[in-house]
């Protein structure tokens, strides 16, 4: 087990290096120039050139890449071009809303999707099943921002039961205010997640219900409900948990959009602002940070398999 964890942690290093190089190259290949943004609309070509030299952007690409890799190796994500603050510090300032938004979304999505999928599998072919399947196709198809604006229009502007946008930290404003502001973003963000997990749960539970040990449980005289709860769900857990892990990637994309729509000052907004300003160190740092989180969560998920299935040993 320990060997396995160590191996997996070590194997993240090459992955991070590849991600770092790719991000670096992609950014340089994309059009746009931070120097031009800094210099403003009325700057002369000389001004821009001077700023480029100051920022080291005129050095050969490989030199820039090497400089950045060295910096990363010493544990430094770099300094933002505009705010002149270390990227690490920026992430630290903005992480709370994103973390809480993601956490609430995952908890809510799992709490809704797993029972829905399980019931759909149990009553497969019934009206409930068809509703769940219809909902999940819909959930996949509607973009997050469309859904977000619809929710804002109905629940916040017409019915006026929830705030339109903004973020209130639970530590400064209390849990209730925090939750009131979280409802809409979490709803908008979780729909696609719910669709994904519900579908997977349904497929997985349906498969388990065909297993011989479910027949054995019936032969014992066990009731259908208990069979579902005791025998089916736990055996169906591994693929469900896996899809939750894969879905983290979806969540990261969704966070950027959701935070913009609801004006939440989190990492998603930080990404967006950095992209618009071509603030290379911030973009690079954030993408590396997100990939690291993604890898870490998936490692935790792989380890969690041992909780569900005693046959899995690392």
């Amino acid at each position: 087990m320990l060997t396995y964890v160590l191996k997996r942690v070590l194997s993240t290093i090459p992955v991070m290096v590849i991600v770092a190089v790719l991000v670096f190259l992609l950014l340089r290949l994309a059009p746009g120039d931070p120097a031009a943004v800094i210099a403003g609309d009325y700057a002369t070509a000389e001004d821009v050139e001077r700023i480029r030299t100051q920022l080291g952007l005129n050095d050969p690409m490989l030199v820039q890449l090497w400089r950045w890799i060295l910096q990363l190796a010493s544990g430094d994500l770099g300094t933002a071009i505009f705010s002149k603050k270390p990227v690490m510090e920026l992430i630290g300032q903005r992480i709370e809303p994103t973390l809480l938004l993601s956490l609430c979304t995952i908890v809510f999505a799992v709490a809704v999707a797993v029972p829905l999928g399980t019931i759909a599998a149990w009553k497969s072919g019934s009206l409930i099943d068809r509703f769940v399947m219809f909902f999940s196709v819909g959930g996949f198809s509607v973009p997050v921002f469309v859904l977000a604006y619809c929710l804002i229009y109905v629940l916040a502007m017409q019915l006026k039961i929830l705030p339109v946008q903004g973020y209130k930290s639970p530590f400064d404003h209390g849990l209730f205010t925090f939750l009131r502001h979280m409802v809409l973003p979490v709803l908008a963000l979780s729909v696609i997640f719910i669709s994904l997990i519900a579908r997977m749960t349904r497929a997985s539970v349906m498969e388990v219900l065909e297993e011989d040990y479910v027949r054995t449980a019936r032969a014992k005289g066990q009731s259908e409900w208990k069979i579902l709860m005791k025998h089916a769900v736990r055996n169906a857990a591994v693929p469900i948990v896996t899809v939750i892990g894969v879905g983290i990637a979806l969540l990261i994309g969704g966070v950027v959009v959701t935070e913009s729509v609801f004006n939440i000052p989190g990492l998603g907004r930080l990404v967006l602002d950095a992209v618009l300003a071509r603030d290379y160190p911030v973009i690079q740092g954030l993408i590396l940070f997100f990939s690291f989180i993604y890898i870490l969560i998936n490692l935790l998920i792989d380890l969690s398999y041992t909780l569900f299935d005693p046959r899995i040993r690392y």
């Binding site: 297993e211 011989d212 040990y213 027949r215 054995t216 032969a219 025998h231 055996n235 005693p310 046959r311």
Partner: peptide
């Protein structure tokens, strides 16, 4: 049953 491996629940 025929196949005791599959007839028993693997996680209990």
């Amino acid at each position: 049953f025929q196949e005791p491996m599959t007839a028993l629940n693997p996680v209990i």
